[in-house]
């Protein structure tokens, strides 16, 4: 047995790759394909059972119904806002960690950034529900200024999602800056560039793949989220809510399947663009 394995590396490869590929390639990809097939079926409105007749009705509804267009646009805008906020917040801290902090502080800061990543997602969304509550700290701080809390809604959703995904942006940026050789920055300043110019023409171009890598997370996680919105979003609807509500309360699996192809499509476009920029190596 060992002998055969030794002489046939292809067999070794097949043995090693077989089980994970069966799981991911066959079962998981199969499930995604099945999801797409289901989206081409319909539900009998009287019995509620799925009818396996091929048609494009679900996709026609998606394209013509105003609600879903609005939800898609809103979700995309939220994803963009969250990504931009995270990139802006992550850049100074990543730069500080990579280029200013001493070795010792670097370690401490990495842990400080990583720790909340492992605090429960739900708990963090819950924490912001407390922050934004009518009797919470934001209301308490805003009161002397004659303002109130913005309450649960779109703004709270963006803040909460940006908060939740921030570490996913900090870590790739930090890794990217860490790899950036200091000699490059010195060369730039030796050649007469000021800090701002070096930042714009040396640091940012090199850092771009890292930003894209981080944005894959912030984007995908925002597109796929429906829990945080339910907790702090008031009645705000995102794509995730539409999918879940159609799946559970609407009991319409085919239409829910059709709806879920929207985030898949967006992410596929995003991932292929990211792959071209070489950002996937940074994950």
């Amino acid at each position: 047995m060992t002998d055969i394995l030794h002489r046939h590396p292809r067999l070794r490869l097949a043995g090693l790759l077989g089980p994970p590929m069966l799981w991911l390639g066959v079962a998981y990809l199969g499930a995604l394909a099945a999801l797409f097939i289901t989206s081409l079926w319909t539900v009998n409105t009287f019995t509620g059972s799925i009818q396996r007749e091929w048609n494009l009705d679900n996709f026609r509804d998606l394209l013509t119904l105003e609600v879903y267009r609005a939800i898609t646009v809103r979700t995309l805008l939220i994803a963009v806002a969250v990504t931009v906020i995270d990139a802006l917040l992550a850049f100074p801290i990543a730069l500080f960690m990579a280029k200013v902090a001493t070795r010792r502080w670097q370690k401490i800061l990495v842990i400080a950034v990583l720790t909340p990543l492992w605090a429960s997602y739900l708990v963090k969304a819950y924490a912001w529900r407390a922050m934004f509550s009518g009797t919470g700290p934001i209301a308490w701080m805003a009161e002397p200024l004659g303002l109130g809390t913005p309450g649960y809604g779109l703004a709270a959703t963006v803040v909460t999602l940006a908060y939740l995904w921030l570490p996913y942006m900090i870590l790739p940026l930090y890794a990217g800056l860490e790899r950036l050789p200091n000699s490059l920055l010195e060369a730039s300043s030796d050649l007469g560039a000021g800090g701002a110019t070096t930042l714009r023409r040396v640091v940012l171009p090199i850092l771009m793949p890292a930003v894209v890598a981080g944005s894959i997370f912030t984007f995908s996680l925002t597109l796929g989220d429906y829990i945080a919105v339910k907790i702090v979003g008031g009645g705000t609807q995102m794509l995730g809510n539409a999918v879940y509500d159609t799946f559970l309360t609407g009991n319409n699996m085919p239409f829910a399947a059709a709806l879920s192809t929207i985030p898949v499509l967006i992410m596929l476009v995003y991932l292929s663009a990211a792959r071209r920029s070489g950002a996937l190596e940074n994950l």
């Binding site: 590929m21 990809l29 995604l32 999801l35 597109l223 796929g224 429906y226 699996m253 992410m267």
Partner: peptide, 19 residues
Amino acid sequence: LIILPIALPGVVTGIALAN
């Protein structure tokens, strides 16, 4: 393929498997 399950939005993985 290995990163796909976390790269794709959670609702997609969820509904695909449930389906």
